[in-house]
Amino acid sequence: MDVKEISQGIFELSKGKKKQLATRNLNPGNSVYSEPLVVVDDVEYRRWDVHRSKFGAMILKKFNVPLNPESRVLYLGAASGTTVSHISDIATNGLIYAVEFSSRTMRDLVMLCEKRPNIVPVLADAGQPSHYSHIVEKVDVIFQDVSQPNQAEIAAKNAKAFLKKDGFLLLAIKARSIDTVANPKKIFKEEVKKVTNNFAVEFEILKRSELDPYHEDHLGILARLK
């Protein structure tokens, strides 16, 4: 099996024509969401299921992922930690602040945090950044996947509060949580506009792309804070 590093800490395992995304396992021997573990040349990799992770899908859509081993990350909408675990594999010396509002999914996330030294769990509403401003410091990257109707506003609020200048925002927008019946293309256009300059912060959109066939009616956005 061939291993190719396509971005810092993110690998592509290929066997013949079959290609898979993976990260190096920070916690060897353990799999987080029963994803397969692959050992190549004595290094253990965890396969990244892009159908369950919007950011995995973004990487396949050729987004430049602004992550390095030292990155400090704010992850909004961490859920049970599927994607967070991969970011934790990449930002090995950094710190990830994982914000999640549901105490049910937080249960799984806390168990993940106990196994990995670089995740800080925050049980709070991502729409109210002030509620966790006593925990979270300035970060290099904000990941957001919250499926709320005011996604753009939440991203802007958090970027204003926690993102360093020239920091990056990776945003997954779910059309169906904004309007269940309207045309997704139209929603995306409005949301991108909102993100760019509707709220107190301004972003430069570096890349946008729909995430099909991995996620239906989702848009991925990579933006830089001006």
Binding site: R107, L109, P117
Partner: peptide, 21 residues
């Protein structure tokens, strides 16, 4: 800083989870 923050945040989340029931 990181170790202490992480440990405390995990403890805080655990308390909040058990209070949420």
């Amino acid at each position: 800083y990181e170790t202490l923050l992480r440990e405390s945040a995990i403890k805080a989340s655990k308390i909040q989870i058990s209070n949420a029931t």
